[in-house]
Design a protein around this nucleic acid. Structure first.
Lengths: 228, 228
DNA sequence: CTTTTGTATTCTGTATGCAGCATTTTCTGT
DNA sequence: ACAGAAAATGCTGCATACAGAATACAAAAG
């Protein structure tokens, strides 16, 4: 997780530190991950000197990445005191889920109209794999596929603004969901809702898909409210 | 509009270049305004050296501000080639308005429940002033008050995530709306819709307010589609 | 005359250095 | 011993400096 060079890639395994990804992007996703996974917990000050040394980068590009994350809402800029990891209250989380619910309802409607059959098939494939992970009890992979499915459905809606807004909220919520470990019965309910979603999508049933997505996120709040 | 120092303020008019606002924030809003008002037209490269000199700031804070705006979606970062002002297609604008419509519908519903009487009165006051500007034919002030009213209603919903997402889209659209000058009859229709909005809000009629807001934004698309 | 290649300039990307502010620690007076 | 003030330390904010990449231009070859 340390040393930013670990993320840089070589063209074909040859030697030399050639990087494909721009450093800025690398830093942004690195820091994002650190925040989401809890390496940097809410309220923590982002110490430029220390953090820069840890990642093997000077302060300048690091500061630029921090500003980027500030605009994304993951960190807060305090004048003369640098940046701190933003802390979300229970109401904040509820607010985000409310908006996310509305956005996904919209996405459901649009997706039924705009999606290609191939696109729907891909979501189905993701879903099947997710169910497999569920049966195997692999929570982490389940969680990741879960997020991917929601993002995939939003992308089927073919509305870039919608994708953007959804991505921002999804990212802000990742840290929360990463923590919220629901019990077996709630987990089963979530999987069941997902099954409904896929069926509705394959039938291109706008009303139904929209309804299920909305309900799914309402329930999501019930699942995570204890954790916040 | 030039020289960033013009935005810095002194405590009580005394001499010395003491600034109250952090430079970063100042730069961000400055650049934002330049993009919205067309000083920097879509596709323009943000030349760091030149722009920095023009604003009287070194490249470092300027770059940080640019990264911030990139995350906001106003500019695009091209690796090794700097930043360019993002260009929005007609579909992009339509997409944004679609999402904005959904968000404002939600805001309408929430506002009817959460708003204080005082808050509603403030929106009414803004509206009355806006109507005054309309009758006076003052397009610029009308336009600004129009935006303010929409933002105010969203704020009445008391949902920070909603305010955030709305603000981002509103900002991205400002440039477009700034251009889109509708004819007299369409302008009258827009004012009439606003009148409906306020009435519904004062009656705390969720369904009605939500419907009017949605319709208003549908029509907004009709009004600006010619301009894009 | 067109195309291509080499070179020069310009701009971005990153590092470093310095000044100002905040905080903490220490010193002094009661 | 304790409260307040002053100094010292550490960090942020901004500017400058340097290295590498991209582009533009020019010269030479087809």
């Amino acid at each position: 997780m340390n040393e930013i060079t670990s993320v840089e890639r070589r063209p074909d395994g040859g030697p030399g530190p050639i990087r494909r990804t721009a450093l800025h992007d690398t830093l942004v996703s690195h820091l994002r991950d650190m925040i989401i996974e809890g390496d940097l917990s809410p309220g923590t000050r982002l110490h430029e000197g220390q953090l820069g040394e840890q990642l093997g980068v000077s302060r300048t590009p690091l500061r630029e990445a921090i500003k980027y994350l500030a605009s994304e809402g993951l960190v807060e800029l305090v004048p003369s005191r640098g940046a701190v990891v933003k802390r979300f209250s229970a109401k904040d989380v509820h607010d985000m889920l409310t908006v996310l619910q509305t956005l996904e309802e919209l996405a459901g409607k649009l997706a039924c109209e705009a999606a290609s059959d191939a696109g729907i098939a891909e979501v189905r494939a993701l879903h099947d794999e997710m169910v497999g992970r569920y049966k195997a009890g692999d929570r982490l992979q389940y969680y990741k596929l879960n997020q991917q499915i929601h993002s995939a459905i939003v992308q089927l809606a073919a509305n870039v603004a919608l994708v953007d807004m959804h991505a921002v909220l999804q990212t802000r919520l990742k840290r929360i969901r990463f923590i919220g470990h629901e019990g077996p019965e709630k987990w089963a309910a979530a999987v069941s809702e997902h099954e409904e979603m896929i069926v509705a999508l394959e039938a291109r049933d706008k009303a139904r898909l929209s309804e299920v997505l909305g309900r799914h996120l309402m329930n999501a709040w019930e699942r995570v409210r204890a954790a916040v």
